[in-house]
Write a protein that binds this DNA or RNA. Sequence first.
DNA 1: CCATTTTGTTATCAAATGATAAGTAATGGA
DNA 2: TCCATTACTTATCATTTGATAACAAAATGG
Lengths: 145, 145
Amino acid sequence: MDKKELFNQFVAFTAAVHQVTHELTQNVKIDNITPVQYKILEYIKVSQSVTPTEISDCLHMSLPNTSRELRKLQDRKFIKKISDTEDRRKHYVCLTEDGEKIMEEAFDSIEDRFLQLIQHASNNDLEDIHHALNILDEKVFNLKL
Amino acid sequence: MDKKELFNQFVAFTAAVHQVTHELTQNVKIDNITPVQYKILEYIKVSQSVTPTEISDCLHMSLPNTSRELRKLQDRKFIKKISDTEDRRKHYVCLTEDGEKIMEEAFDSIEDRFLQLIQHASNNDLEDIHHALNILDEKVFNLKL
DNA sequence: CCATTTTGTTATCAAATGATAAGTAATGGA
DNA sequence: TCCATTACTTATCATTTGATAACAAAATGG
C-alpha cells in the first residue's frame, strides 16, 4: 500500500467532508449567531461539561476571545456558568433551556439533511458506512499527534 | 441499523475530521497568507484550471470578495490569470512558479504530519483505511444533496 | 442592432475574528 | 506567609471576512 497514494486520497476525502458539512449546516441559521458562536454551542452540546479553557483549547481560540464570545452567549441566555465547588476559579459552562432548544432544532435540521443524504442507502450500505466510520475513527482520526 | 445512531456517529466523526485537518495544517504558515487565501491556493492546486466564478461557488464566497483575494494573490505573484480565447469574459486562474513552490512545500509539510499520524499502522491497517475512505466517499460524501 | 445575461472588477462599509496587555481571584507550594 | 501559577475577565486594536452597490466588457438571443 503506497502511503503517498493514501495521502492524496486523504486530502480529497477531507475536502469532501468539509464540503458536505458545510452543505449540511449552511441552512442552520439561528438568528444572529456567528459561526464561532455556533461552534461553541455545538461543542458544549456534544460534551457533557466544559470549562472555558477546554473550549479555548479544542476550538483553537485564545482564552480572552473565548471569554468574550461566552459572555455574548450568556447575555443572550443560551448558556450559563456554574463555578466549581472545589476549585472556584473553574467555571463549568452549560446550555440553558433556551440553548438546548435552539441546538436541538439545529441538530434536527442537520439530521434531516443527513437522512436525505443517505436516503438511498440499503441496510447493508448503512452497516458498511458504520463500519468504515469506526475504522477511520480508530486508525486515523482519534490518534494524538 | 439505526439511522439516528449513525447520525450521531457521523457528527462525532466530522468533528474529529475537522480537528485533525486543523492540526495537520496549522503549522503551515506561508508568510502573511490568510486562511481564505490559503483555501483558494489549495483549491487552484488540486483543480486543473479554475475560473473566479468556480472558486466563488466552491468556496462559498461572493464573487467580489473572491476577486479581491485573487488580486492580492496576484499582486504577490502566487497566481496568474489567463483569459479564455473563446469567451473573453472568462479568466482561468492558475499558480505561478512561486505559487507552485509554496503549495508544494505546504503539501509536503502536511504529508509529513499525515505520515506521522499513521506511522504505527500496519500494511493491513492501511488497506483498511483505504477501503473505508472509498466506502464513505462513494456512499456518503460524494453525493449531491 | 438592441436588450439581457454572464463574468468579472472596484469601492466601501460593517461585522467577525485574532492578538495582546493588564488585571482579579483562587490555588498551591516553598 | 508569600510567591508563582492557574483560570478567567475586561479592554483595546488590527486584520480578516462578508455584504452590497455600481460599473464595464463580452456574449447571447431575439
